[in-house]
Nucleic acid binder design. Sequence first.
DNA 1: ACCAGGTGCTTCGAACTTGAAGCACGCCAC
DNA 2: GTGGCGTGCTTCAAGTTCGAAGCACCTGGT
Lengths: 165, 165
Amino acid sequence: MADAPPPLDRVQLDAYFALIEVVGLLRHAVEQQLREAGDLSYVQFQLLARLNDAPTGSHRMTDLADGVVYSRSGLTYQAGLLEKAGLVTRAPSAEDERSITVTITDDGRARVAKVLPGHAEVISRMLLEPLSRDDVEALAGLLEPVRDHMRATPPRSAATRRRRR
Amino acid sequence: MADAPPPLDRVQLDAYFALIEVVGLLRHAVEQQLREAGDLSYVQFQLLARLNDAPTGSHRMTDLADGVVYSRSGLTYQAGLLEKAGLVTRAPSAEDERSITVTITDDGRARVAKVLPGHAEVISRMLLEPLSRDDVEALAGLLEPVRDHMRATPPRSAATRRRRR
DNA sequence: ACCAGGTGCTTCGAACTTGAAGCACGCCAC
DNA sequence: GTGGCGTGCTTCAAGTTCGAAGCACCTGGT
């Protein structure tokens, strides 16, 4: 054994626990709202929202999976459900025969529009309410570098295959 | 219908997305480390950690479920696994015939001790590294009120099955 | 003492998730 | 061009998750 790893101090633990707990509670609330308002799971909503924001209204499967931090096989399943529901379409990419391009349909956009207000309402009530405008700015300012760090550093999350050079 | 709910602005969305994304990535990394280091899922680790920190080394099922933001039935399942693995014991409470008291065993404490250093290492590398000491303090200071707010706010509709302490 | 409603936990079924294995295409050095 | 490896997606089996329903106990009002 080399040096014992430095244990975390009180403040670090506080920040970590608060982070996990806040997101856990928030996700629960959001999930419930999405289910009631538009019969969507959280992942499905995230996928539709991403497609809805994309200039072309479409993305590759892999990019979607990475974007929402999800397994590839899980994405295949969810994309299948969304397609069955008529909210997206799947088509092989012209440029790369291997890729599938997922595109949001008008029904998909409508569904997003339908649940969005309630979604915003939950975020406001649960997360934003106890924070001042400056607080929210500070929070975003703190977390964004962390996200970038995590995206850049790690050995590519749950992918069986990684490595590229 | 009353007023249309106010949509979220850029900064609010940034904070929200960063929050969700950071925790998603962090959880993935932590989960992998826990699995490799001690064959524990994240929930199982959270449960053991809570029991380990408790003065008595035990908690009621419901309190555990609330603490880690988990369904009751899910907790029954996980507690069963932990018991089978000899990391906790379950016994009916003396005071309340309905409750089950879950207690961590010596093996359970040993398991926590075994995975803890690696856990701390992941938190440090992924979450804490890009943050200054002041940043970490600020983060905790921002999130703790939010957590308390969320804990206090009733789940709007599911008010039936609630209350405690 | 009674009973009506609340609380604590488990069971059950159905849905979801994941990594590993598998297939097909793309890239590149030879 | 062609073999070999990397990449994109799907299939598969096993494990996990949740809500609803069910059972047992507890509490407060009468």
